[in-house]
Write a protein that binds this DNA or RNA. Structure first.
Lengths: 197, 197
DNA sequence: TTGACAAGATTGAACGTTCATTCTAGTATG
DNA sequence: CATACTAGAATGAACGTTCAATCTTGTCAA
């Protein structure tokens, strides 16, 4: 019996295939160095289909961003459910970020280092998105329940997460040769010491 | 052709005028959203002159970057000359970065948050440039002379500067409403506490 | 089971625009 | 007169997007 083309075609999820190609190209060469024909070539999906699903080129970047933000948000919700103390929550957040950086560097690059404002001019900065406000809320909670020194919220959050973001950035730039996990314990000791009561 | 009066012409430094227009446009809208005609309009310098001085569009971005890196390098050399202890040097570096962010946010944005690799594909990441390696060298020196706990260099540097970079980033994104100087003391206490012996 | 049909998905060639760069002509300087 | 600089219109390639045609899928009457 002949295999119908239709069954093969219907087996691929076009948005998924396109987003996979897009995140690779966007993080590798940048959004503006990636043409729609590039995405067509890489994904095997036609121009027309891409426009049918995403509206325009920025629609791809937007869909990708929203997907990844939601994913990170869910991960943080999980962490809050699984840990009681603020300290262990914060540590788990950093562990998650480090793991994500190692396992899916493109995801981390896209979330942290793509200038989304250049692509979507009236988008709020990443640091105002749910996952990031949630991180800061954890710090506020820790100050309220006495785990963290009383001080400016922003300074406390920056002190706690700043080192982690620095290492992630260095790792993604290829400056750090060993996986982030190897730095985790030492970094956390520094970070926690800087704000603990 | 337009007739120019010679005195007007000789009085303006074309590279300077162009770079001034460019940094404004690049940080405001992004490099790829800025066309050469945009720069022509903003600077008042003709297309031909721009190409004569800079070769191509990336030449503008490159000249700008090199100028700013050199400037920061000189500032750090000054700091090393004026301070003896590693602790006061590091504190001075953060103070300088905070001041620069407040006084010339465009300069800081261009140095830290423009993806230069997208513009000049085979450029080393910013964190490998002289000023940044010098910052890390200060930390290494501090470990050698006993001011800083013995630990991984990168973790120590990330812990010391991570919080500062975080606050700079938040400030440039408009999330932090008050000038960075107001956070400086509290932040430095956290940062230094995390690595001091 | 079959055929007709509608709605939606998919295709890629074609379109109009914009961009970086080049070109030719003109001007200042020594 | 030569060299360095300035000017802005012209150029051609590349881009994002559109569109008319084609294919797929699900529905329903006979």
């Amino acid at each position: 019996m002949q295999i119908m083309i239709s069954t093969i075609k219907s087996n691929r999820n076009i948005p998924e295939v396109v987003l996979k190609a897009a995140i690779h190209l966007f993080t590798e060469q940048g959004y503006f160095n990636t043409s729609v024909p590039d995405i067509v070539k890489k994904s095997g999906v036609s121009t027309g289909s891409i426009y049918h699903h995403f509206g325009d080129k920025t629609g791809i970047a937007k869909a990708l961003f929203e997907m990844l933000v939601k994913r990170m948000e869910n991960a943080f919700d999980d962490i809050e459910r699984k840990h009681d103390s603020v300290q262990s929550r914060l540590r788990a957040v950093i562990e998650y970020l480090f793991q994500l950086t190692e396992e899916e560097p493109e995801v981390m690059t896209y979330m942290l280092f793509i200038k989304h404002k250049e692509i979507m001019p009236n988008m709020a900065p990443v640091c105002s998105s749910k996952p990031f406000t949630k991180m800061r809320q954890m710090v506020v909670d820790g100050m309220a329940n006495g785990e963290i020194k009383t001080m400016d919220n922003m300074v406390a959050a920056a002190s706690l997460f700043g080192g982690a973001f620095r290492l992630i950035s260095l790792r993604l730039d290829g400056v750090l040769e060993r996986p982030l996990m190897e730095y985790q314990d030492e970094l956390w000791r520094c970070a926690w010491q800087s704000v603990q009561k």
